[in-house]
Each structure stands twice: as structure tokens, then as C-alpha cells.
Computed example of a mutant assay.
Amino acid sequence: MTEFEYPPIAGYFAGVDEVGRGPLVGDVVTAAVILDPSKPITGLNDSKKLSEKKRLALAEEIKANALAWAIGRATPAEIDQLNILQATMVAMQRAVQGLSVQPGYVLVDGNRTPDFGLPAEAVVKGDGRVAEISAASIIAKVQRDHEMAELDKLHPEYGFAKHKGYPTALHMEKLAELGPLAEHRRSFKPVQRALGQGS
């Protein structure tokens, strides 16, 4: 993969990534991270390529050593109202607005970026190429997995701790059997089918 070349800027780079566009339940969670150049963190990578143990350890290290980090989110109701893509963009804006340090430039994983009111660039496969985006992907993934574990405690019969809300066979089976929760995204086809609204 090609090495990412940082543009010359004044100020700090913030990396932004999202977790949870595909699941049928819960918030879409984003994170924004500004790393401290004087405190490099080794082992950063796309959160999906790291073990859970490694992710948890790195998340603590990022939170302890980053210049700033923040979580953004959009709720199932907002996802249903806006659509998942637009809700993700709003959640990314919220994460950047939540930073205690103003970045000079925002790097977003993927192929599009919302309007942050700051210079920004989308980086395809950025979570494996840009340290700031890798850090954001880890923070967002650990946060959302924790929220799914909490939801699992409230509704253990759905198996959220296992599938994290993604449309696995188990999740689909439980959705059909038990019906959707308030946390389910009503605009998603499998949830509509469970409500008897979809084809």
C-alpha cells in the first residue's frame, strides 16, 4: 500500500474514523484523535486487524498520550431520519467539534469527508495508512464494542456481545423471533422485515 504523504500545514492533524455503519442496532460511533508528535505510539493499525486485547491496550495508550481525542455519535433515530451515510457525517463533525485542541487539518478514513469548517481530506484505507486515523478507528471500535456489551447485559437474548449488532444469522433469527428493540434502526431492511413492513 502506498505510504501516505502528509500535506504541509500549520497546526495539528486530526484523524477521524467511524464504527458501526453496518449494524442494525445502536449508534454509529466516530472518533477524532490528535496525536502528540513527541509521544509516538507503536502498533497502531486498522482496528479490525488487531486482537481485542491489543485494541483495548492501545485505546488506553492513545487516551493517555494523545494531545486530544473525542467521541462523536448519531443515534438510531438520527440514522433513520437522515440515512446512515449522512448520520455518519454528522457524527464525524461532532467528534471534531469535541476536540479540546483545534486541528489545522482533518484526515478522514474513506472516500468522502463532511464539512468541518477546516481543511480536510478523505484517505482511502486511511485506517491502515495514517496513524491518526488508526488511533481514531481503535477508540471508536472499543467504545462501540463496550456499548454493545452493555446492551447485551440489558437484553442477553439477542446476543449483542457476540455479533455487535451486525446482521449475523443469530441476530436475524432473534430479530424475527423477539422483534426489534428501541435501539434498532427502523430504516434498515432486516428491521423493517421484522416489523412486518419490508418485503
Rank of each mutant, 00 (worst) to 15 (best):
A169M: 15
A59Y: 02
S187W: 09
H171I: 11
F4A: 04
P119L: 06
E132P: 00
L151V: 10
L154S: 10
L24S: 09
L118M: 08
I133D: 01
P190A: 12
R144H: 13
V191F: 08
A10T: 07
R129S: 12
D46S: 09
A59K: 05
A74G: 09
R144T: 08
L118H: 05
K164V: 14
F4Q: 02
S199A: 14
A87L: 05
A74T: 10
R129F: 09
K39Y: 02
G159C: 09
F13D: 00
I9M: 08
E147I: 05
G198R: 12
S199I: 14
Q192C: 06
V191Y: 05
V19S: 03
E147S: 06
H171L: 14
M172Q: 15
G22K: 11
K141T: 05
G15H: 01
A14F: 01
Q93V: 14
D17Q: 01
K54D: 13
D80Q: 07
L175S: 06
M148W: 06
K174I: 07
E132Y: 00
G110I: 08
A32R: 00
E52M: 11
V123C: 01
V123K: 02
G43F: 07
F13V: 02
S38V: 08
K53F: 13
G128S: 15
E150I: 11
G15K: 01
F160W: 11
V16R: 00
G110T: 12
G128T: 07
L99W: 03
S47W: 03
T113Q: 08
A122S: 14
L170S: 14
Y166G: 10
P40F: 13
P190C: 13
G15T: 00
L67D: 01
M172P: 05
A135C: 06
P180H: 10
L35F: 02
D127N: 01
E52W: 03
V130C: 03
H184T: 10
I138F: 00
R55C: 09
N65Q: 15
V101H: 12
A131G: 03
G165L: 06
Q81R: 15
